[in-house]
Amino acid sequence: MSWAEFREAAPGFAEAVEQRFGKYPHHVLATLRKDGSPRLTGLEADFRVGELWLGMMWGSLKARDLRRDNRFALHANPGSDNGMDDGDVRVSGRAVEVTAPDVLARWAAGAPDGGTPEKFHLFRAEVEEVVWVGVEREEIVLRIWRPGHPLRVIRRGDGDAPPDEESAH
């Protein structure tokens, strides 16, 4: 599912996730190495034209990982302290490489920093799961969205009571 389709399915949640990613420029991308072990690298997430774009240096290890196995997870920068006021946000799915010269040129022309190299890899995210974890009052709150399902909200206290789960429509 494209980012635009996710925004249509869960508009308020998508906006909150974009704002959380927008708080810092650098985030952490998880890809899979040839041997199946995880690789974590830095990345700037780019939300434009209804898509989540993953741009990276030509020939980078993360680009080679995604070309071989397109599964990824992107974790929003948690910030410099332990407050987590805006929660912990993750997006996972599959990265589809974009090779059309006209799309690459349009993306490079609109890049926020204007410093796009002549050759680069560009991937469009196909979203399979978005998770936000935060603390509200005395509870840990998880918001989980997957294509074809309503937004799930799970609230957990620190006692023995089972978590409370609801679906937000």
Rank of each mutant, 00 (worst) to 15 (best):
R94F: 10
W132G: 04
F123A: 03
L104A: 08
S92Q: 12
A109D: 13
R106S: 15
D160F: 08
E136L: 06
A108R: 11
V153Y: 07
A105M: 04
V89Q: 02
W107P: 02
R156T: 15
V131S: 02
P101F: 05
R106C: 07
I140Q: 11
D88A: 05
V96M: 01
A161H: 07
A95R: 02
D164M: 11
D158M: 13
G87W: 06
S167W: 13
L142F: 13
R67L: 09
W145F: 08
E129R: 12
R152A: 15
V141C: 08
W145H: 07
V103S: 05
H121Y: 04
E136C: 02
S167V: 08
I144D: 12
D85A: 15
E128N: 10
V141M: 06
E118C: 04
D102S: 14
A73L: 11
V135F: 08
F72E: 06
V130A: 05
F72A: 02
G114A: 08
G115V: 09
H121C: 10
S92N: 09
V89C: 06
A76R: 02
G87F: 09
G110A: 15
G114N: 08
R64Q: 05
T99M: 04
R124G: 01
G148I: 05
P147N: 08
D160L: 11
V91E: 05
E139L: 12
R156S: 15
V91I: 15
S92E: 14
P101M: 07
V103Y: 07
L151E: 10
E165G: 13
A108W: 07
G110L: 12
W132P: 01
V89W: 12
A108Q: 07
D102P: 00
R64H: 02
R68V: 01
W145L: 10
F120C: 05
L151R: 05
P112N: 04
V141T: 13
P78C: 06
S92F: 03
A76I: 01
D158P: 04
E138W: 05
G114Y: 07
R90N: 11
A63L: 01
H75V: 11
G83P: 04
A109L: 10
D158V: 11
R94P: 01
N82Y: 14
A76N: 00
R152T: 14
D88R: 07
T99F: 02
P163Q: 12
L151C: 10
V127K: 02
G87M: 07
I154Y: 09
H149E: 15
N70H: 03
E138K: 13
E126Y: 01
A125N: 00
V130E: 03
D88H: 10
I140S: 13
E97A: 04
G110W: 05
A125S: 07
N70L: 03
E138L: 09
P117S: 04
V141A: 08
R152H: 13
P150W: 00
L74A: 04
D164A: 14
E126W: 00
P163G: 08
R71T: 06
F123K: 03
A108F: 05
H75Y: 06
D113K: 13
P163K: 08
R156A: 14
A168P: 03
G134H: 10
D81W: 08
R106D: 15
A63C: 01
